[in-house]
Simulated assay, not measured.
Amino acid sequence: MRRKQYLAGHMIQLLRHHEIDFARWETCLQNAGESLVYLQAWYLEVVCSGEWEALVEIQADAYVSVFPLPVRRFLGTKKVYQPLFTQQLGLVVTAGSQHTSAEEYLSLAASLFGQVQYQMPWPEEAALNLTEPWTWRRRPNYELRLAPVYAEIRENYAINLRRNLKKTSQEQLTLVPTESIQPLLELFQNTKGKELPELRPRHYQKLAVLYAQAKQHGVGEVWEVHRQNKLLAAAFILRTAQRTTFLFGASSAEGRTHNAMAFLLDQLLQQEAGSGKTFDFEGSEVPGVAKFYAGFGAQPVSYVSLSLQPNPSVLSWTPNVFRFLARHLR
């Protein structure tokens, strides 16, 4: 018999990894119309290496709300952390949900785990009713609505971006899909990766596994920009029914000279224009990168980065390189 831990009036349960029914999980996401790909069970399996639990509201044997909790052990105690390549998680609710307050789930997580690091959607206009020892700060994602046709989207491009794209039209750049993520990983390792020694071989391997799973589930794509048979830039994107997410990308020095990444993103936007979807640039707090994304007309959308450190004297816990890379990767 499965051991279940009931919480909050016997409707919210803490489910250990082996207790989570992936089929019911996915049905809940579908019923909620949830668009964040990071919340898919297969995605969590990869980025958490199979080590995640969840707070789940269950009614009539169906999951009506889910709140994933990536966990790791540190000094013998389970902690909740934000996995790499996972910008946001958070609460998913359906029409049948009776527990729809994110603060309630965070409070439960705080009562169950010693320390928590978590990032989740939180609109700028919404108050965040958490007390000490919780701390948090808002961070910007950058998103572009793709309801207009391409000509209208391009009208909102920054003048400098339009100028650079005009140059690319004269430089014989080509955008091609590819079945392998290895050239992208090698390009990154040979460029930006040299500035990020914290990104180890196991992290690149996890990204390769993530791409393989994303491709298997019909949402993962890698696109490359070539000029005279030379790879200048590449990007790993996740394309779902409601959202296209720019997860990981790289450019060579020559690619930057020829504005290859701007060309790549512009081509993807042409593909999706008029679809009504959202193009998710994944945001950045690096001013130059944020300005680059804003140049496409993308708007900042707030989310929160939360931290629960009950005892300041406790050894600071950083389970992986997420927080460093979140500031420097993009």
Rank of each mutant, 00 (worst) to 15 (best):
R24Q: 15
W25H: 13
W25G: 14
E26K: 13
E26Y: 08
T27K: 12
C28A: 15
Q30F: 04
Q30L: 15
Q30I: 15
N31S: 15
A32T: 10
G33Q: 11
G33W: 06
E34V: 04
S35T: 11
S35P: 06
S35V: 09
V37F: 14
Y38E: 14
A41Q: 04
A41D: 07
A41P: 12
W42Q: 11
W42S: 09
W42R: 08
Y43I: 04
Y43C: 03
L44K: 05
L44G: 03
E45T: 10
V47W: 03
V47H: 05
C48I: 04
S49N: 12
S49K: 11
S49L: 08
S49D: 12
G50H: 05
E51C: 12
E51A: 12
E51D: 11
W52M: 07
W52G: 08
W52T: 10
A54W: 00
A54D: 05
A54Q: 01
L55H: 08
V56D: 04
V56S: 02
E57S: 08
E57I: 11
I58F: 02
Q59E: 14
A60G: 00
D61E: 14
D61K: 11
D61M: 04
A62V: 01
A62Y: 10
V64G: 03
V64H: 02
P68M: 10
P68T: 12
L69H: 05
V71C: 10
R72S: 08
R73Y: 12
R73Q: 13
R73V: 13
L75K: 13
G76W: 06
G76D: 06
G76L: 08
T77W: 09
T77Q: 14
T77N: 09
K78V: 00
V80K: 02
V80L: 08
Q82S: 12
Q82F: 02
P83L: 06
P83I: 05
F85C: 04
F85I: 02
T86W: 09
Q88C: 02
L89E: 09
L89V: 14
L89R: 13
G90V: 05
G90R: 10
L91K: 08
V93L: 02
V93Y: 00
A95Y: 07
A95D: 15
G96A: 15
G96R: 15
S97F: 03
H99E: 13
T100C: 15
S101A: 14
S101Q: 10
A102M: 08
A102W: 03
E103N: 06
E104W: 00
Y105L: 10
Y105I: 01
L106P: 03
L108I: 14
A109S: 13
A109I: 03
A109R: 07
A109P: 06
S111I: 00
L112P: 00
